[in-house]
Protein backbone atom coordinates (compact mmCIF):
# COMPACT_ATOMS: atom_id res chain seq x y z
CA UNK A 1 0.00 0.00 0.00
CA UNK A 2 1.27 3.35 -1.00
CA UNK A 3 1.71 5.96 1.52
CA UNK A 4 -0.66 8.89 1.14
CA UNK A 5 0.86 12.04 -0.35
CA UNK A 6 1.16 14.92 2.11
CA UNK A 7 -0.01 18.36 1.19
CA UNK A 8 0.63 21.45 3.32
CA UNK A 9 -1.95 24.17 3.05
CA UNK A 10 -0.88 27.69 4.10
CA UNK A 11 -3.74 30.18 3.99
CA UNK A 12 -5.26 32.65 6.42
CA UNK A 13 -8.82 31.94 5.32
CA UNK A 14 -10.14 29.41 7.80
CA UNK A 15 -13.18 28.52 5.69
CA UNK A 16 -11.15 28.00 2.57
CA UNK A 17 -8.65 25.86 4.45
CA UNK A 18 -11.57 23.77 5.71
CA UNK A 19 -13.05 23.36 2.27
CA UNK A 20 -9.79 22.54 0.54
CA UNK A 21 -8.87 20.17 3.37
CA UNK A 22 -12.21 18.42 2.99
CA UNK A 23 -11.77 18.16 -0.76
CA UNK A 24 -8.19 16.95 -0.68
CA UNK A 25 -8.85 14.42 2.04
CA UNK A 26 -11.89 13.19 0.15
CA UNK A 27 -9.67 12.41 -2.80
CA UNK A 28 -7.05 10.71 -0.67
CA UNK A 29 -4.38 13.21 0.33
CA UNK A 30 -3.01 13.71 3.79
CA UNK A 31 -3.53 17.37 4.58
CA UNK A 32 -1.69 19.65 7.00
CA UNK A 33 -2.38 23.27 7.32
CA UNK A 34 -1.24 26.57 8.76
CA UNK A 35 -3.01 29.93 8.99
CA UNK A 36 0.13 32.08 9.01
CA UNK A 37 3.22 32.30 6.86
CA UNK A 38 5.77 31.66 9.65
CA UNK A 39 3.67 28.81 11.03
CA UNK A 40 3.62 27.43 7.50
CA UNK A 41 7.40 27.23 7.42
CA UNK A 42 7.48 25.55 10.86
CA UNK A 43 4.83 23.09 9.72
CA UNK A 44 6.75 22.35 6.57
CA UNK A 45 9.87 21.61 8.60
CA UNK A 46 7.85 19.37 10.90
CA UNK A 47 6.02 17.42 8.25
CA UNK A 48 8.10 17.65 5.06
CA UNK A 49 5.06 17.57 2.75
CA UNK A 50 5.09 16.47 -0.89
CA UNK A 51 3.45 19.73 -1.97
CA UNK A 52 2.74 23.11 -0.46
CA UNK A 53 -0.33 25.13 -1.41
CA UNK A 54 0.60 28.68 -0.56
CA UNK A 55 -1.42 31.86 -0.28
CA UNK A 56 0.28 35.20 -1.02
CA UNK A 57 -1.33 37.74 1.24
CA UNK A 58 -1.97 37.06 4.88
CA UNK A 59 -4.18 39.00 7.22
CA UNK A 60 -2.99 40.04 10.65
CA UNK A 61 0.27 41.63 11.74
CA UNK A 62 2.71 42.42 8.94
CA UNK A 63 4.92 39.47 8.14
CA UNK A 64 6.33 37.62 5.16
CA UNK A 65 3.99 37.09 2.21
CA UNK A 66 3.64 33.90 0.22
CA UNK A 67 6.48 34.77 -2.11
CA UNK A 68 8.78 35.44 0.83
CA UNK A 69 7.79 32.08 2.30
CA UNK A 70 8.64 30.30 -0.93
CA UNK A 71 12.03 32.04 -1.03
CA UNK A 72 12.77 30.98 2.56
CA UNK A 73 11.70 27.45 1.81
CA UNK A 74 14.09 27.46 -1.06
CA UNK A 75 16.95 28.37 1.29
CA UNK A 76 16.28 25.38 3.51
CA UNK A 77 18.33 22.38 2.37
CA UNK A 78 15.59 19.92 3.31
CA UNK A 79 12.61 21.89 2.07
CA UNK A 80 14.10 23.48 -1.02
CA UNK A 81 12.89 20.82 -3.41
CA UNK A 82 9.31 20.65 -2.16
CA UNK A 83 7.07 21.86 -5.02
CA UNK A 84 4.87 24.87 -4.38
CA UNK A 85 1.57 25.91 -5.91
CA UNK A 86 0.53 29.49 -5.28
CA UNK A 87 -3.14 29.79 -4.54
CA UNK A 88 -4.03 33.45 -4.26
CA UNK A 89 -6.59 36.12 -4.93
CA UNK A 90 -3.87 38.39 -6.29
CA UNK A 91 -4.72 38.85 -9.92
CA UNK A 92 -1.72 40.98 -10.66
CA UNK A 93 0.40 37.94 -10.09
CA UNK A 94 -1.09 35.99 -12.91
CA UNK A 95 2.33 35.62 -14.35
CA UNK A 96 5.07 34.12 -12.30
CA UNK A 97 7.93 35.85 -13.99
CA UNK A 98 6.17 39.06 -13.10
CA UNK A 99 6.34 38.13 -9.45
CA UNK A 100 9.75 36.54 -9.19
CA UNK A 101 11.42 38.19 -12.08
CA UNK A 102 12.41 36.40 -15.27
CA UNK A 103 15.50 34.79 -13.68
CA UNK A 104 13.62 33.16 -10.84
CA UNK A 105 11.31 30.95 -12.86
CA UNK A 106 13.46 27.97 -11.79
CA UNK A 107 11.85 28.38 -8.36
CA UNK A 108 9.91 25.40 -7.16
CA UNK A 109 6.68 27.28 -7.73
CA UNK A 110 4.97 25.00 -10.16
CA UNK A 111 1.73 26.84 -10.79
CA UNK A 112 -0.22 29.90 -9.94
CA UNK A 113 -3.90 29.46 -9.28
CA UNK A 114 -6.08 32.48 -8.88
CA UNK A 115 -8.82 32.28 -6.29
CA UNK A 116 -11.63 31.50 -6.53
CA UNK A 117 -10.85 28.14 -8.00
CA UNK A 118 -12.98 25.11 -8.67
CA UNK A 119 -12.07 21.69 -7.28
CA UNK A 120 -11.55 20.24 -10.76
CA UNK A 121 -8.97 22.86 -11.68
CA UNK A 122 -7.20 22.66 -8.34
CA UNK A 123 -7.02 18.88 -8.43
CA UNK A 124 -5.78 18.94 -12.02
CA UNK A 125 -2.93 21.29 -11.07
CA UNK A 126 -2.03 19.16 -8.05
CA UNK A 127 -2.01 16.02 -10.17
CA UNK A 128 0.32 17.74 -12.63
CA UNK A 129 2.80 18.07 -9.79
CA UNK A 130 2.26 14.94 -7.76
CA UNK A 131 1.14 12.59 -10.50
CA UNK A 132 -2.13 10.66 -10.69
CA UNK A 133 -3.69 10.05 -7.31
CA UNK A 134 -5.13 6.83 -6.00
CA UNK A 135 -8.85 6.79 -6.10
CA UNK A 136 -10.33 7.32 -2.66
CA UNK A 137 -12.37 4.50 -1.46
Amino acid sequence: MCQMKKILLVDDDVQLVDMVKTLLESVGYEVYYAYQAEKGIEKAKATTPDLILLDVMFAGPPGPDGFEVSRQLHKDPVLKNIPVIILSGVRKALDLSYVFGPDETWMPVKAFIEKPVKPDTLLAEIEKVLGPRQKAQ
Binding site: D13, Q15, L16, D18, M19, V20, T22, L23, S26, G89, K115, P116, V117, K118, P119, D120, L122
Partner: peptide
Protein backbone atom coordinates in the same frame (compact mmCIF):
# COMPACT_ATOMS: atom_id res chain seq x y z
CA UNK B 1 -15.22 39.45 -1.15
CA UNK B 2 -12.80 37.27 -2.98
CA UNK B 3 -11.80 35.15 -0.01
CA UNK B 4 -15.28 34.21 1.14
CA UNK B 5 -16.22 33.67 -2.49
CA UNK B 6 -13.22 31.43 -2.96
CA UNK B 7 -14.23 29.22 -0.07
CA UNK B 8 -17.88 29.30 -1.16
CA UNK B 9 -16.96 28.19 -4.66
CA UNK B 10 -14.58 25.60 -3.36
CA UNK B 11 -17.22 24.26 -0.99
CA UNK B 12 -20.03 24.40 -3.51
CA UNK B 13 -18.22 22.57 -6.25
CA UNK B 14 -16.77 20.02 -3.85
Amino acid sequence: LKNPLASAIMGLFT
